[in-house]
Simulated assay, not measured.
Amino acid sequence: MNLPLRHLPGSTAVVLDSPHSGTVYPADFAYACDLAALRTAEDTHVEKLYDFAPALGVHWVEALFPRSYLDANRNVTEVDVSLLDGPWTGPVETDPKVLSKVRLGKGLIWRTTDDGIPIYTRQLSVTEVEARIARCWQPYHLAVSQAIEAAHALRGYNIHINCHSMPAVASSHATEFPGEAHADFVVGDREGTTASPALSQLVCAHLTAQGYSVSYNHPYKGVELVRRYGDPTRHRHSIQLEINRKLYMNERTLEMTPEAPALKAALRSLVELLLATDPRQL
């Protein structure tokens, strides 16, 4: 895998990144489950929903590797040591809230699919996990960091949207709320700690006005990419935006549906609003 990501620098204060839409499955993955089951982990087509963004001057970063191979929205401390054939050489997460996701099989390296299907019938070597971090996690976070720094330097603030999709109904091992029917959108800012609540509410209000149902910080508050790069006290605003897949795709066939263009138009109107918004004035 020569190119683990796509990074298109922009000319505005807005940054979008899509860490989970990658579909390039590396040869060294050596997974044992069915590929169709594995592909349910993808935020399939999210990059297509935002393909208008670079032409608007928005910074864009997109992972090409699959989330199940390495989850760029997890910290490198979120290692499921039960997967390894030897002791992990780095620090391991101790926060009980974070560990709950690792126990579900959704750490930095996934152990199971969202439906609890084991991905491997082998243990992974410490060396190969370290290689995935070096080849995928580190370049991805470097690209996001560089994009945010460039965006912030332009105006003295930045707005970062961490782009995701979610199933219409939560799977058994996806969240701590299995079986929950999701709203059309979930806006997450880790309870106002990664973005100004006024900015987050602006996003919620705009999507609601477009006719969508919107949930705020439930069941997704935002994970590592907004936690790491959001700091509203320094005018660095990071919001995780989850889109219900039923709005644009068939979750069984993974094909985009005729409703996708309307959703894409709504997302464009949201990005245009953010381009015209100075969070310091909210």
Rank of each mutant, 00 (worst) to 15 (best):
E62H: 01
V76R: 07
V24N: 10
N162P: 06
R132H: 12
A174E: 09
G188I: 03
E128R: 07
A153C: 09
A13F: 05
I133G: 04
G57N: 02
S68Q: 12
T233P: 11
F52N: 04
G222I: 00
T193C: 05
V186I: 13
P96L: 04
G105S: 03
H20D: 07
R155E: 12
L56M: 10
G107N: 01
P87Q: 11
V226E: 02
T23D: 10
D95G: 09
A36W: 13
A72T: 10
D43V: 04
I133Q: 02
V129I: 09
T127L: 14
L154A: 15
A131N: 14
I148K: 05
R252E: 15
L267M: 15
R6K: 12
V129K: 06
T40N: 11
C33M: 13
G156A: 11
L5S: 01
A53E: 01
P96I: 00
H164C: 08
Y220L: 05
E130Y: 12
C136Y: 11
C33V: 14
A55R: 04
D80F: 02
Q123I: 08
R39C: 15
G22T: 05
L84Y: 02
R236N: 03
R227H: 12
C136N: 12
W110E: 05
S238R: 05
L254P: 02
R227F: 14
D115Y: 12
T113Q: 02
D80V: 02
P279E: 09
G192W: 03
S125R: 11
A183T: 08
T23W: 05
T253M: 05
L38W: 05
S11G: 10
T12I: 06
D184T: 01
P279S: 11
L273G: 13
I119S: 04
S215Q: 11
G107C: 03
L35E: 14
P261S: 01
